[in-house]
Simulated scan of single mutants.
Amino acid sequence: MKIKVWVNGKLVQDDIAPDMTLFNYLRDKGYKSVKCGCDTSNCGLCTVWVEEKAVLSCSVLAMRVDGKHVTTLEGLQDEAEAFGMMLASEGAEQCGYCSPGLIMNVLRMKRELKNPTDEEIKAYLSGNLCRCTGYMGQLRAIKKYMSQNGEA
Rank of each mutant, 00 (worst) to 15 (best):
I3L: 14
K4F: 01
K4W: 00
W6E: 15
V7L: 05
V7I: 15
V7M: 08
V7Q: 02
N8I: 02
G9C: 13
K10M: 12
L11C: 11
L11Y: 03
V12Q: 14
V12K: 14
D14A: 14
D15R: 08
I16T: 00
I16K: 01
A17M: 10
P18T: 11
M20K: 15
T21L: 09
T21Y: 05
T21W: 05
L22W: 02
L22Y: 02
L22P: 09
F23S: 10
Y25F: 15
S33M: 04
S33C: 01
C36L: 13
C36K: 08
C38W: 01
C38Y: 01
C38Q: 03
D39Y: 04
D39R: 11
D39L: 08
S41L: 09
N42E: 13
C43H: 03
G44Y: 04
L45K: 02
C46L: 05
C46M: 05
V48Y: 05
V48S: 07
E52V: 03
E52I: 03
K53Q: 12
K53L: 06
K53M: 06
V55N: 09
L56N: 14
S57L: 09
C58I: 07
A62D: 06
A62T: 13
M63R: 09
R64F: 10
R64S: 15
R64P: 00
R64A: 15
D66C: 11
H69T: 13
V70D: 04
V70T: 04
T71L: 03
T72C: 08
G75I: 11
G75T: 12
Q77R: 14
Q77S: 15
D78M: 06
E79Y: 03
E79I: 00
E81Y: 11
A82S: 14
A82P: 00
A82N: 11
G84A: 13
M86D: 11
L87H: 07
L87A: 06
L87P: 03
A88C: 00
E90C: 14
G91C: 08
E93Y: 12
E93M: 07
Q94V: 02
C95E: 12
G96I: 05
Y97A: 11
P100L: 10
G101S: 04
L102C: 04
L102I: 13
I103A: 04
I103F: 01
M104N: 08
M104G: 10
N105R: 12
V106P: 10
L107D: 02
R108I: 03
M109C: 10
K110D: 06
K110S: 13
R111C: 08
E112N: 02
K114G: 04
K114C: 03
K114E: 15
P116Q: 01
T117A: 12
T117Q: 10
D118V: 12
D118C: 00
E119A: 13
I121P: 01
I121M: 04
I121E: 05
K122R: 15
K122F: 00
A123V: 02
Y124D: 07
L125N: 02
L125I: 06
G127H: 01
L129H: 02
C130N: 05
R131T: 12
R131S: 11
C132W: 02
T133V: 09
T133P: 07
G134H: 10
G134V: 10
Y135K: 08
Y135I: 08
Y135A: 09
M136A: 15
Q138H: 14
L139N: 05
L139I: 13
R140I: 03
I142P: 01
K143F: 02
S147T: 04
Q148I: 09
Q148A: 11
N149G: 06
